[in-house]
């Protein structure tokens, strides 16, 4: 990553503007990795070579997370140096909030659904003295 960063710095110096764009190499690496990381999950779901929906789903999610990270580094150029590290801080903060929002909603609503089941309601009513 260090030679990449050197070129970015030089480019930023030439036009007196901020950095924030990568080299051709980083774009091509990002594109190649993304193509692979997209093709495999589609193949996993369409051809179903595993024959196990749970395992396929888990793998697909792993590939998505890895691809999001590849895009972040290769295309969005988030690193510890850009904008004095503030883009990365904002990115990590957003990631945490995002996880809390999505996982929290699913967790709460799943339990709400379970507790609102008709059978569950009568059980709880009968338990109360």
């Amino acid at each position: 990553m260090s030679p990449n960063h050197a070129t970015t710095e030089r480019a930023a110096g030439t036009h007196g503007e901020m950095e924030g764009h990568g080299s051709k190499r980083s774009y091509l690496i990002g594109f190649g990795l993304s193509a692979i990381l997209t093709a495999i999950p589609f193949w996993l779901v369409m051809a179903n070579p595993l024959g196990n929906d749970g395992a396929t789903a888990a793998l697909v999610i792993v590939f998505a997370v890895v691809q999001i990270l590849v895009h972040t580094v290769c295309f969005l150029h988030v690193n510890t140096q850009s904008e004095g590290g503030w883009t990365m801080v904002a990115y990590i903060f957003t990631g945490v909030i995002l996880l809390i929002t999505i996982a929290g909603s699913l967790w709460i609503m799943y339990h709400l659904n379970t507790n609102m089941m008709p059978g569950m309601m009568t059980e709880q009513v009968s338990q109360t003295p």
């Binding site: 789903a57 697909v60 999610i61 895009h71």
Partner: peptide
């Protein structure tokens, strides 16, 4: 940044809506 960001969001869409929906 806007354009690449939309591609990142699309990763979430095709994974969670389409691929996991088919499963």
């Amino acid at each position: 940044m806007f354009w690449h960001f939309l591609d990142v969001v699309w990763i979430g869409v095709f994974t969670f809506v389409y691929l996991l929906g088919m499963l």
